[in-house]
């Protein structure tokens, strides 16, 4: 299939050209965060405490990998279901996140927010976690190690495949 290859930080004009249904690959840096990390980040924002990373133009991947076996940077690493992060999406957008990767439906509220903040929601390949492992070159825990699989990882990825679900113009592949 025809794919669009993007590199982080994703330039503005590259984000703008993305349309629902596009098959894209991402190379560079993405950060994992799932339920507990989102809740914690929201708390840190409310308490005006320092954040673990700079979220400006960041790509956030909703994922909780399996532990890294010896000789591999990470274990299996497919996306988790995104709607559980809906309640925290505005906070993440206001911190500067421009792309979210997960799987499954977003709320109508989140879809409006994506348009307002010029951000994009993509789905990776749910349950293709061994396949996606092959796209991860390096993985480092950057925050919340105590959360185990829900810790926040900085991933260096090479041609990590995703499908654009919600573009910044209101396009929706699931609709």
């Amino acid at each position: 299939m025809k794919t669009i290859d993007l590199h982080t930080p994703i330039p503005e004009h590259d984000l703008q050209q993305l349309k629902a249904g596009d098959f894209i690959t991402i190379s560079g840096t993405i950060y994992t965060a799932r339920d507990k990390a989102h809740k914690k980040i929201a708390e840190l924002v409310t308490q005006q405490k320092p954040l673990p990373i700079d979220f400006t133009n960041a790509v956030i991947y909703y994922a909780g990998p399996s532990p890294a076996p010896p000789g591999m940077p990470i274990g299996a690493i497919g996306p988790t279901t995104s709607y559980r992060m809906d309640a925290y999406t505005e906070a993440m957008l206001s911190l500067g996140v421009r792309m979210f990767i997960g799987k499954g439906f977003r709320s109508s509220e989140v879809k409006k927010l994506l348009v307002n903040y010029n951000a994009v929601y993509c789905s990776s390949f749910g349950g293709a976690a061994a396949y996606l492992n092959q796209c991860v070159v390096d993985a480092q825990i950057v925050a919340f190690e105590e959360f185990g699989p829900e810790a926040m990882y900085k991933l260096t990825v090479e041609k990590f495949p995703v499908i654009v679900i919600n573009d910044m113009y209101g396009g929706d592949l699931y609709a």
């Binding site: 274990g75 299996a76 497919g78 390949f125 349950g127 976690a129 061994a130 396949y131 492992n133 699989p149």
Partner: peptide, 21 residues
């Protein structure tokens, strides 16, 4: 096709089929 490849990679490289075990 990707899901089929996933099964092959999981078996040959001993990586769990899904991170959600």
């Amino acid at each position: 096709h990707i899901l089929l490849q996933n099964a092959t990679i999981a078996a040959t490289k001993h990586i769990p089929l899904c991170q959600d075990c």
